[in-house]
Each structure stands twice: as structure tokens, then as C-alpha cells.
Design a protein around this nucleic acid. Structure first.
Lengths: 147, 147
DNA sequence: TATTGTTATACTCTATAACTATA
DNA sequence: TATAGTTATAGAGTATAACAATA
């Protein structure tokens, strides 16, 4: 950003959300750089670790991305050695995507780094303010899904 | 989104910010549809109206976008009849971008519609909660710019 | 030489359509 | 016929490099 944004922009919720997200994405990317992945890829690993076994399509649904997007995402994570595809025995159309040992280790370390980065990002609000913000955002998303 | 996102995602600040922003962008786009522009284009009109005269480059700096991005943005707004380019007399390298009568009218009406849409989006938090969220986001952006 | 606007180009993220293999 | 994965392709949105006009 070149200089301070004018009030006519910082009074817009859309502007605030967009630029807050951009700033956080950059901060998290910096924190995750040593682990060789970004926040989006880490979220994929977290989803795969939380529920097992997941097919590519099931993982894509959890993440809210298209299955064609998931192909590229798994390609990258497989190239990096964090996951492996294997054909499901029960239904040979499905790829089960599972974490490798490296994937599991990286997930643990990177999740700690992400948590630290998020806490630092939210530090200006204080601990209570940070929890409040997260709660508010959750409430908005939940409300939106019902509408 | 296909179904509820799992807790492993809704506990991530990045996920919350991204999807809150997506939901708001969609809500604002719906509200602005009758006026023939989207939230980003409306923000350009608002910046141009707030400070006069602005060259393309100056407007781009206020908005935090590249000058090449600004070219396309002004092209679209000019095609829609909301703004006009004219050469600056003082410095003939510069395009002064000014609102047309239609641009000014549309800005007023669309800004009211945007405000209504944002208030409705934030309604689950109550008036006090909504103000608090906006204040928190402003605080985060200000803090981030200083780091 | 530097700045402003422009064009050409490319890169990221995402989705749609069509293909393959399996069911 | 329908589903899972894949590929090709295209559309936003954005940025970098190079050029013309002007300073």
C-alpha cells in the first residue's frame, strides 16, 4: 500500500475485510515459509488429519473447493512429500489421500507457527478482543449460511 | 459451500476472514445489482468524489491498486458512463478522472444500498457488536501498517 | 532522465465442460 | 447411467516489462 488509505475506504466493511485478510495471509505465509507450504495447503493437511479416510472429493467438500481445484492442490502436496494418493479398495474410483510421516510432522510444527502468527496478528486487540473477533466472525458465517 | 465446514477450518482466522469477505462481497453485489456496478467500482467512485481533482495514478494510490489495474477500472466506469477522463492542463501527462452527473447520482443511491446491505450483514452482532467489529478491523489494519 | 498512461503479457485462483475408469 | 478423478480451457484479478507522450 502506498500511504494511508483515506477514510472513505476504511469506513467500508468490504475494504476492511479484504485488506485484513490480505495482511493476515502475508503474515501467515511468512511464518510458514520455513515449512515449505502456505496457509491454504496447511488447511488441506489439517482437514485430512482430522478425518480419515477422506477421498479427494470428500476433502474438497470439507474445504469448499471444486474437485478440479483439489486435483492441483493434492498434486502440489504430493510433490512436496506431504501426502500420498492410494486407490480405495472398496471403490476403485476413489483416491484416498493420506498424510505421510513428513506430512504429519510438518502439520504439527506448521500449525504451531500458524497459531503464533495469528495470535501476534491479533495482539493489538488483546486476548479478550481477539477471542471476541473470532466469535463475531463465526457468528456472521453461521448466520449467513442460514439465509 | 457443500455443507457445514468442519471445526478444524472454522477455528482458523484465515478461513473465517476469507469466507466472511466472500459472503459480504456476494451480499453487496446483490444489493448493487440494480445500479450496474460492484463494490469495487463503487469504491472507486467514492474515492474520486471524496477528493478532487485526482489523476488516475493518484486515485490508484488511494485505492492501493496498480496503475495498470486502474486503467481497466476507469475503462469500465467510463463505458458505463459514470466517469470521464480529461487531460490535465497543468500536466498533460495526467488524466483527471471526474464523475459524470450519472456517476454522482449512482454513487449516492448505491452508497445507501451498500450501507443497508452491510448493516443487514452485521445485524447478527447487534448495533454495538457491529461497531465493535469495524473498530477492531480498523485497529488491526492500522497496527499492521506500522509493522 | 523521470513520470503518466497504455498495452502486452503472465501468473494465480477458480470454475465449467469433456474425457476416462469405475460403479 | 452416475460418480471420482483428470485434463483442457477460460475467466477474474493482479502484477511486471516495455512503449509513447510529456515533463
Amino acid at each position: 500500500m502506498a500511504g494511508e488509505p483515506p477514510d472513505v475506504l476504511t469506513g467500508r466493511l468490504g475494504y476492511l475485510l479484504k485488506h485484513t485478510q490480505l495482511a493476515l495471509t502475508a503474515a501467515v505465509a511468512r511464518a510458514l515459509e520455513p515449512f515449505g507450504l502456505d496457509g491454504r495447503e496447511l488447511a488441506v493437511l489439517a482437514v485430512l488429519a482430522a478425518e480419515y479416510p477422506l477421498s479427494q472429493l470428500a476433502a474438497a467438500e470439507r474445504l469448499g473447493v471444486d474437485r478440479t481445484t483439489m486435483v492441483a492442490l493434492v498434486d502440489v502436496l504430493e510433490d512436496k512429500g506431504f501426502v500420498e494418493r492410494r486407490r480405495s479398495q472398496e471403490d476403485r474410483r476413489k483416491n484416498i489421500v493420506e498424510l505421510t510421516g513428513l506430512g504429519r510432522e510438518t502439520l504439527d510444527k506448521a500449525e504451531r507457527a500458524r497459531g503464533d502468527a495469528e495470535r501476534e496478528f491479533l495482539a493489538p486487540l488483546g486476548k479478550a478482543g481477539a477471542d471476541r473477533l473470532v466469535g463475531d466472525l463465526r457468528a456472521l458465517l453461521t448466520a449467513d449460511r442460514r439465509s
